[in-house]
Design a protein around this nucleic acid. Structure first.
Lengths: 339, 339
DNA sequence: CTGTTAGCGCTTTCAT
DNA sequence: ATGAAAGCGCTAACAG
């Protein structure tokens, strides 16, 4: 900001024409002669004119900015989603304002406020784990700002969601462990306030049931999505001397902590303890190239969510119904595990 | 956008006062009675007023937005920097507009243009590997937009930079390998258009020299920062039947690819081939809990760079001289490697 | 095809 | 302490 005081009026004056013509020319309107258009563009360059989008936005009542809210930018899953979002938005001429809730409801509320104040054209959000009261989102939604939830969905009716089939993922993961010979599968769960973790848990239980294995509450350990939790959990499991031979982790971060701890104790994965869990490149495959995972397609999810949002932004009429897109997340048994 | 047409005029009208008083009250000016202030705030809430920051920005000639340009959001180092940036900016009342150049100069130029057009209050940038012509940045700088380069610095005189001591890092890493008994240390280099990779390379050569080891050009393999390059490099090294026992990687992404490939061939790290490289949590420690790395403090760098930028934004006078901050990056020999 | 005229919603002198 | 008035820089009717 500051300096660069060149406006369309300056270039209008220099050319003895009206600023509205300049505006039209610079917006490549068909209602300006090629010739004058050239003159104007030339003069603009000469004077070092740089469009003031803020003024334009105020007048046009759009911003070409979409707000993105994630719990934590540096979690790899979210940063790949953001990458997908940015690429799609960029191609459509939109910018992205990125905010993180740090899993705190209060912060999420305030973020929504400033997003509205900044008049973003739409919002993509993965809610915080504290978010059980949806009023701020409901308000946003009913105030006409296009809104798409991704990964962690929201129970408000008539909203757009882009999700992974978590029940299926949990089921398939557990099933895989059982088929590999595990009899006592531990479940690393996530915050049960969030649907996605509830559903993964349900999938786990369903798989046990299908295989006539008992559900043992002691084998379920929860975490709040920090790596340290995983370390603690692993310690607890070993110290309790529980009988377990496999882990289904709904929560990649905790799984990483646990794996590190196991490694430091000389416990081999998957030979001693088999682990299958939701995961994201590159952590999962890297921690153990032979690891089997349920892959979460973050990049694709970002692209899809943004595509959906842009559709809603463009036809701001109510003609578009809200929809829920469920993406596939496949069990990946790495090649290298054949070794 | 749309709907919510409540403006300060509406609430002024409802209260039979002037909109300027409303504006003052809402900005908590001391020149309004407590009493009327209360009335106004109350009415605002009642009508569901939501400040239009776009209009405010136009008038005030600031945006409270800082632009961030990184090569690729999903690279862990950059996502941790961004996390630091966002947290610092948030606390100071700023939002962040995040853009990725995808290592392309053309894209970087266009991003700078839209950032200027959007009148961001300042810019944080890590230049693309194609950026050898700095004219667009020079222009930005001289047009008075506060600018801070981080990680990958820029050769324009009189600019702000927040960097890591790359020469030292390269030196220390190579030294460590040599001390561990390596006689033939390979160097995975990065694009030599970037200072940081040049400096790491220099550090490598300096360490060889200091230890009276010959420099062998054949042992230097370059990459363009993609994981696939690492796989290719590893293959090439093995197929050439070169005699090498250690790798200093200036480039974590390529190192990961290589490590995966080595793992698939049953080659053990660090027993068969020792690797030390610039890295970022969690990849490095996870790929091999015993791995020794040169840690890059992304989060701290983000905080520091943003702090510096904010200083320059606040005193927009020329009173502040540009400065270069060099951060420490330490060699981390993991505990678990003692096992 | 181009000019005239009003604003978008807010802030900020300058009066009172 | 409040009001009146003038824009920030741009766009969009409406004329001509």
């Amino acid at each position: 900001m500051e300096i660069n005081k060149v406006t369309i009026h300056d270039i209008a004056k220099a050319l003895n024409i009206d600023s509205s013509t300049v505006s039209r020319a610079l917006n490549n309107s068909s209602r300006v002669t090629e010739k004058t258009k050239c003159k104007i563009v030339e003069k603009a360059q000469e004077l070092g004119y740089q469009r003031n989008v803020v003024a334009s936005n105020l007048r046009k009542r759009v911003t070409n900015i979409i707000g993105v809210v994630v719990p934590r930018i540096s979690r790899h899953f979210f940063s790949s989603v953001i990458q997908g979002i940015e690429e799609t938005a960029y191609l459509a001429g939109y910018n992205v304002l990125i905010c993180q809730s740090l899993e705190q409801l209060e912060r999420e509320k305030q973020i929504i406020d400033t997003l509205v104040a900044n008049r973003v054209d739409g919002v993509l959000i993965s809610i915080s784990m504290e978010t059980t009261d949806y009023s701020h989102l409901q308000q946003l939604n009913s105030s006409g700002v296009p809104l798409v939830f991704f990964d962690r969905h929201c129970n408000i009716p008539n909203t757009n969601n882009v999700l992974i089939d978590d029940f299926k993922g949990g089921f398939v993961a557990t099933q895989h462990l059982i088929k590999s010979g595990c009899k006592n599968v531990v479940h690393f769960s996530g915050p049960q306030t969030l649907e996605i973790y509830k559903n993964r848990f349900k999938g786990y239980k369903a798989a046990l049931k299908k295989n006539n294995l008992p559900f043992n509450e002691q084998l379920v350990v929860s975490s709040s999505l920090m790596e340290d939790d995983g370390v603690k959990n692993a310690k607890k499991l070993l110290s309790k001397n529980l009988n377990f031979d496999g882990i289904f982790s709904a929560n990649d971060v905790a799984a990483i902590g646990a794996m590190k701890y196991f490694a430091s104790k000389g416990i081999k994965i998957p030979e001693d303890i088999a682990i299958v869990g939701f995961s994201n490149e590159p952590i999962s495959t890297v921690i153990n190239p032979a690891l089997t995972t349920i892959d979460q397609p973050g990049f694709e999810m970002g692209k899809k969510a943004t595509g959906l949002l842009l559709e809603h932004i463009k036809k701001q009429s109510r003609s578009l119904r809200p929809q829920t897109i469920v993406m596939e997340s496949n069990l990946i048994e790495r090649q290298s595990s054949k070794k």
